[in-house]
Simulated scan of single mutants.
Amino acid sequence: MAKAALVTGGNRGIGRAIAAGLVAKGCGVTITARGRAEGAEAAAALGCDWAMADLLRPDTLRQFDGARFDILVNNAGILPQGSLLENPQGYFDAMAVMVDGPFRLTLALAPGMAARGFGRIVNLSSGWGAFSEGLGGPNAYGIAKAALNAQTKALARDLPDCVKINAMCPGWVRTRMGGEGARLSVEEGADTALWLAMLPENGPTGGFFRRRKEIPW
């Protein structure tokens, strides 16, 4: 039976490349988007379904409570600007989108994954969220990614072995967020996420990866 996958923020950038890769692997894919036009366009181009959801609005995530998905890719992200003191709202928004949203979706989908004996959760993180790399980035971006990393490691302890959860850094990718000067294509940035989404039974869990290799937190 084909695996069902949910990819947040899958209408553009790395998320869209991940969705395309999962479709190519035979998965039934649903992407989320914040706008109707963007979601419909991307879904039509990718050959998948879509749902309107905004991780800044937790009520829009309730539609996924108890939904049947075997793969969850928490890809959606924002890059708030300015210092934490000058733009404190950036902190709250970053945590809502890149920490609280992924956790809410994990709570919604993981019980069903466990009951069916299969689940793969992939959290799109960043080297900016690694203490080993200096915890960089503007505003609260690095803080949120570090918290997402910690969430990944803690949830791996609590989830059953059949539900694998990992974080990954796509690298510097040519997206609206990464800019045109980035070294990697969206397909290259998506590769590790696709690998983690399709891990075999003996695959890793609770790790942090880049280019399919484990990296320090």
Rank of each mutant, 00 (worst) to 15 (best):
D65S: 13
G112D: 12
A144L: 11
W195I: 09
G101F: 02
A43I: 03
F103S: 08
L194I: 05
L79A: 08
I31S: 06
A24P: 14
K164E: 05
A156W: 02
L199C: 09
G181F: 00
T175M: 11
Y91M: 15
G127V: 12
G119V: 03
R120F: 02
G137S: 09
F118V: 05
L84E: 11
S125Y: 00
V186T: 12
G28D: 14
A108T: 08
F131E: 12
Q63E: 10
I14D: 11
W128I: 12
R104V: 05
E188M: 10
L85W: 01
K213P: 02
C169R: 03
L72D: 05
L84G: 12
N149D: 06
N202M: 11
R174N: 09
A5L: 06
L199D: 10
E86M: 11
L22I: 08
L22T: 11
A147F: 02
Q81A: 11
G9E: 07
I165D: 10
R62F: 00
R157D: 08
G206C: 13
C48F: 01
A20Q: 15
V163N: 06
A147S: 12
R157C: 09
R211G: 06
V7M: 06
G21V: 06
N139C: 05
R62I: 04
C48S: 14
A147D: 08
W128P: 13
P170T: 03
A76N: 10
N202I: 05
L6V: 02
N139D: 06
C27N: 13
G112V: 08
T205F: 04
C48Y: 02
G134H: 05
G137Y: 01
K153H: 04
L155W: 02
I165M: 14
G101M: 14
G101A: 15
P80I: 01
A167W: 01
I14T: 10
I14F: 02
T8S: 13
A197I: 04
V97H: 05
R212A: 11
M95G: 08
F64P: 09
L105K: 09
T60I: 05
A5M: 08
R157Y: 01
A130F: 03
G35M: 08
Q89G: 07
G90R: 02
K213C: 06
I121M: 14
G189W: 00
M177T: 04
T60D: 09
L56E: 13
P200K: 14
N11A: 07
V29D: 06
A42I: 02
A19Y: 00
V23C: 15
L46V: 07
T152C: 13
L55T: 08
F208P: 04
I71S: 08
D93V: 04
T32M: 08
R104N: 11
R120H: 03
N139Y: 00
A197V: 04
I14W: 02
M198V: 07
N87Q: 11
P88F: 01
T8N: 13
A190K: 07
A4S: 15
